[in-house]
Design a protein around this nucleic acid. Structure first.
Lengths: 240, 240
DNA sequence: CGCAGAATTGATACATCTCAAGCTGGGTGG
DNA sequence: CCACCCAGCTTGAGATGTATCAATTCTGCG
C-alpha cells in the first residue's frame, strides 16, 4: 500500500487522471488537489462505511471495485451503486453515508478530507462542473438500472449486467466492436443477486442457461467470455 | 395559460421560489433568470418530450406532476422519475432526453432555453451549487426507489409509494406528525404500476388489500386517506 | 342516459423464491 | 502428498407471488 501511494503520488501519472472528478483541472488546480489527497487501501470484502456512519472524506476509486447497498431490517439487501475506477465516493455537503460501502475487490481510493474538498468545489468551477456532470451520469445509470430491476426477466437481468461490464471492458481496450470480449466478474453470485434483485440460485441458473445457449462461455465461475456482444445485448432486451 | 403566465411572471411571487434551482439566487441573479424565463403549460396525459428527441429547453415544474419513463421495444415501460413542483427537468450539457417525459396532471413549467441557461450555470455558482444539490438528492431518491423495485413485495411497493406521497403532502401543510393525511393520487393505476414495476391488476389488488386492513381509506380510486402514517410506513417495510 | 376509459375482481399459468442436497477448487494441517 | 474443510457455486423439487387472460363494475362526462 505504501508502495502504491508512492507510485501514484503524482496526479500526472494517475490512471484515472482524465475521467475522475479532477479530469478538467488545469495544472495549478491539480496542484491544489495533489497537496490535499491521500490514499486508502482496502481488501476485497472489507467494509468501508456502514450506512449512517460519519464519513469524514470523499474520494475517487483509483483501482478495484466498490459497491453501495441498502439493507432492510429483515436482511434483504439491494445494491444501489457499483463504483468502478474513476467513480466518485461520498457526497459533498453531507457528513454521513445513507449506504453501506463495501470493497468488492482489493481497492485503492484517492481521498480528500470533506471540509477542504468542499471549499475547493466552491472555488473551482472545473471541479464543480465535473462533479455535476458525473452526478448526472450516475443518475442516468441509476435510471437504466431501475428499468432492469422493474421490468426485465431474470435472464435479461443477468445478460444486462454482463453486457454493462463487457462494454466497460471493451472500451478500456479500444478493441473493434466484433471481437470476443473476456472479463473477470468483479462480483460474487450473491453480489450479482444483490445488484439485480434476485436470489443467488436464480443467478446461477440463468448463468448456466446463457452458457448452454452459447451466449457466454465460462472458463471458471468468475471468468466470462462473450463471443458476440450483439447476441448478449439482444438477450438483455436492449436494442443493439 | 396566458393568465397563469401573467400571474406568475414575478419570481418573487413564485410558489417554488425557495425550493427550485433558483432557490439560492440573490436579487440580481434572480433578475437574470426573470428575463430569460418563459412558461409552458401542458394538459394531463400530454407528451412533453419523446425519448431521443431534441429538447431545446430546461426548466422547473411549477405546478402539477410530470414523469420520466423508459420503454422497451416490446412495450414494457418503467417510470424512472416522478417530477413534483420545484423539480428540475432536462439536463444541462445534453440536447436530447433519454426518457419520455409526460404530464401526469395539468402542468406548468418555468422554462429556460438551454444555451443561455448553461451560460448562466457556468457564471452563477448559486445556480450551479443548487443544481448539484438537487441532482444529488434525485440520485438518493433513485437509489431508494431501486430498493423498492428490487427487494420489496407488491404490498410493500404500494405502501411505499403512498407513504412517499403522503410525506410530501404532510410536509407541505406543516401538520403535526400524528394527524391523518388526505391526498389525491397524481397517478392512474397504470402509472402506479409503471412506477413500481407491477401490473395494473396487482396494483388494484394490493390497494384493496391495504384498504381492507384499514391502513388506507379510499374515498374514490384517487382520493386516499392515511389514518396512521406509522402503520403505512411499517407496511412499506421501512423503519419508522 | 349511455358510453368509454378506468378500476376491480376472478381463475389460471408461470417465473422466481425457498429449502435442501451436492459439487468444486483452493488452502491447510497432519 | 493426501485428506479434509470451507466458501462459493450449482442443481433439484416444490411452494408461492405476481402476471396473464377474461369478465364485470365503477365513474365521469357528453
Amino acid at each position: 500500500m505504501t508502495q502504491l501511494s508512492l507510485r501514484e503520488s503524482k496526479c500526472g501519472d494517475c490512471p484515472i487522471r482524465h475521467q475522475a472528478v479532477c479530469a478538467r483541472c488545469e495544472p495549478d488546480e491539480l496542484q491544489l488537489l495533489e497537496q490535499m489527497k491521500y490514499y486508502r487501501s482496502y481488501e476485497a470484502g472489507q467494509q468501508i462505511v456502514w450506512a449512517g456512519d460519519e464519513m469524514g472524506f470523499v474520494g475517487s476509486v483509483v483501482t478495484g471495485v466498490a459497491n453501495l447497498s441498502k439493507t432492510m431490517e429483515d436482511g434483504r439487501r439491494q445494491m444501489v451503486g457499483l463504483l468502478l475506477p474513476s467513480d466518485f465516493v461520498g457526497r459533498p455537503g453531507r457528513s454521513s453515508s445513507p449506504y453501506d460501502i463495501v470493497a468488492s475487490s482489493d481497492l485503492t481510493l484517492c481521498c480528500f478530507r470533506r471540509g477542504p474538498f468542499e471549499a475547493l468545489v466552491s472555488s473551482t468551477p472545473n471541479v464543480a462542473d465535473r462533479l455535476l456532470a458525473m452526478t448526472l451520469d450516475e443518475l442516468d445509470a441509476a435510471r437504466n438500472w431501475m428499468l432492469i430491476l422493474g421490468r426485465k426477466t431474470a435472464r435479461e437481468k443477468i445478460a444486462s449486467l454482463i453486457a454493462i461490464l463487457a462494454k466497460r471492458e471493451s472500451n478500456m481496450g479500444h478493441r473493434p466492436a466484433a471481437t470476443p470480449i473476456e472479463l473477470e466478474l468483479p462480483l460474487t453470485r450473491v453480489a450479482m443477486a444483490d445488484y439485480l434483485g434476485l436470489t443467488r440460485e436464480t443467478v446461477s441458473r440463468q448463468m448456466s442457461a446463457l452458457k448452454a445457449e452459447g451466449i457466454i462461455e465460462l472458463a471458471s465461475a468468475r471468468r466470462v467470455k462473450v463471443p458476440n456482444l450483439a447476441r448478449l445485448t439482444l438477450a438483455a432486451g436492449d436494442e443493439p
